[in-house]
Design a binder for these strands. Structure first.
Lengths: 339, 339
DNA sequence: CATTTGAATGTTAGCGATAACATATGATAT
DNA sequence: ATATCATATGTTATCGCTAACATTCAAATG
């Protein structure tokens, strides 16, 4: 490694003390204008770049936030990350991005590294099968700012920025029911993450509004990705004709896409044989064979909002904990059937 | 902020020196097994997390790499980032993600911060209108490992990992010409980034193979995104009927999608009135109205490969500079017309 | 039994920067 | 002319950790 230039080297070559150089470069008072000029010129000439590592050790601040994402290549998360990055960039923060691949142990390692790197705050969307509740709590209590984002975990003293999942699920299920479908199934995400629970709850409440019973065989468990949706839908299609749903509310768009594949493979059409809806407005939603009716989740804004909340929490001890819910809206396309 | 536990605190509460604690926790030789046990237990009990900032200051290594991406939410880059993350995770590196938004000045700021944070290496895909050649050179020479990825810049002593852009462009243009189209246009990216230049070159060589003249009015400049493609295609459509191309090779898929919109808006059909092809196999390519024939770019693998090269360069002084080209393949769908 | 040996531990210094305090110098006041 | 003060600069210690050298003490050696 070529040695980087240090304050001390600049100081020596100028015959002043390191402290003077530090003051000059940081624009402090009490430095002679002439000296300041000489220092800045010399620093430029020597190609000086301040060492943030050393700075951080003194200031106990790294101007860095850690982000833990279950799946980077998911269009929702990619957009959210971009929102986060743009928000913090203006505030002079940097982003350490980690990826849990929906796995609890990878998430744990990521969190531990972020702690070790002394990030000022952490933004996390919990992995689907996370069991790191103790760790979340420890971080929240240790003074590292922590904000949940999209998926939260109950009982942790941390803010959360998400959309109104329950209401979104309620609205889209209600929309299906308004079409007159009696048997509406739900492809449900794991119940230990908030979107799994909240969207199921919204689904149930919509059934309630229409005076329909919740039928357990119409609720099929899935993960949050295409393959899971495909498998879950397969199961529903194995039901006897009489019990088979005429409409399906999938917990998110990727799951809906997987389910669509299963439906086509079964020789059925969408929406005529089976209607389907998703959640998130994935970039592919308008493009699939039967364009997907879905709940629009403002991913980019969600990222920005979460980042802003995290920074407020870092910079202001008194910042209150709060749950921020952005509103969703329905995007009616064709997959839900025509009214 | 709650103070984090330090080595010294553990040492004091155990009545040993900080050095002994350090040795015990880092599994060095020359520590009594009993002492080691006590230290580890105590560290656990006190909730110790090593301070990587301090460690880095001593070791002159941060185990962190910086990544500079023009547009995170672009599906190609999102996949590549995921590949990068997965590759470096196993090697105990972390990723600082920055976003240039295709802007030279944001890119410059990002690079300077990464330098200041003393990342061990940088992976960059140059912004479309970057003019930071001097800075690239300075970084490459300063001893920070630097690897270009997807888009490179000539004349910098740095490795590059990309696909065989020229060959990919050649193959897909050739494919169009084999359909019998005489007038094939190209929506070309800026010539200061490699993909702009190389893909244009591949296009020209394919024309040459078919003994066709390069006609400047059939080469329309665009940026790399949907809106640019739309605008560029609009211009081509304004050409008199006799000069208008019957087929278009767009520099990448987003540009192709924009161009498709312009074509439909003009009341024409794809591929019957105008055939079109892209480059990158975006997640939307198979889904659009006339599924897009394109060049498959293995984004995830590209990310992994680039990350691996960067780490080799960080860990091995002798690692040679090289340009690594991954191979592309054609994905024939419908937008190129039927053979 | 004095001495060598080496394992276990301690001490000091330094990574690069800055906070806090100390000092020097010239200007101003009395 | 001497005291006072503000400005510019220097010195020291510290952030948390580790490399390099120093010390201790018990077991092994002759």
């Amino acid at each position: 490694m070529s040695s980087n230039v240090t304050l001390k080297q600049i100081a020596e070559s100028l015959g002043v003390s390191a402290m003077t150089v530090s003051r000059a470069l940081n624009g402090r008072d009490n430095v002679d204008e002439k000296t300041k000029g000489r220092v800045i010129a010399k620093a430029e000439e020597m190609g000086y770049t301040p060492n943030y590592i050393a700075k951080s050790l003194v200031s106990q601040k790294t101007d860095t936030i850690g982000v833990v994402i279950p799946k980077i290549a998911h269009s929702f998360f990619a957009q959210a990350i971009q929102g986060i990055e743009e928000e913090i960039f203006d505030e002079k923060y940097q982003l350490i991005l980690t990826h849990s691949a929906e796995q609890g142990d990878r998430e744990r390692k990521a969190l531990e590294t972020l702690k070790a790197k002394r990030v000022d705050g952490i933004l996390i969307s919990a992995a689907q099968n996370s069991d790191n509740y103790g760790l979340y709590r420890q971080i929240a209590q240790s003074g590292t700012a922590l904000v949940f984002f999209d998926r939260y975990v109950e009982g942790i003293e941390a803010s959360c920025v998400k959309v109104d999942d329950k209401m979104g699920a309620y609205k889209i299920t209600d929309h299906l029911l308004n079409h007159g479908y009696q048997k509406v199934a739900h492809l449900a995400a794991p119940q230990n993450i908030s979107i799994g629970k909240d969207r199921l709850q919204g689904y149930k409440e919509a059934l309630g509004k229409h005076k329909l019973q919740v039928e357990e065989h119409l609720i099929e468990a899935t993960d949050l990705h295409e393959a899971g949706g495909y498998k879950a839908m397969k199961k529903l299609l194995e039901l006897p004709e009489s019990k088979r749903p005429k409409a399906v509310f999938a917990v998110n768009d990727p799951v809906a896409f997987g389910a669509m594949d299963a439906i086509y493979e079964h020789g059925l059409t969408i929406p005529d044989d089976i209607a389907i809806t998703g959640f998130s407005d994935d970039i592919r939603a308008p493009l699939v064979k039967s364009p997907l009716t879905t709940v629009v989740q403002p991913a980019y804004d969600l990222g920005k909002r979460a980042a802003r909340k995290l920074i407020s929490q870092i910079e202001n001890e008194e910042e209150p904990l709060e749950n921020i819910e952005l509103l969703t809206s329905l995007k009616i396309r064709e997959s839900c059937g025509y009214l």
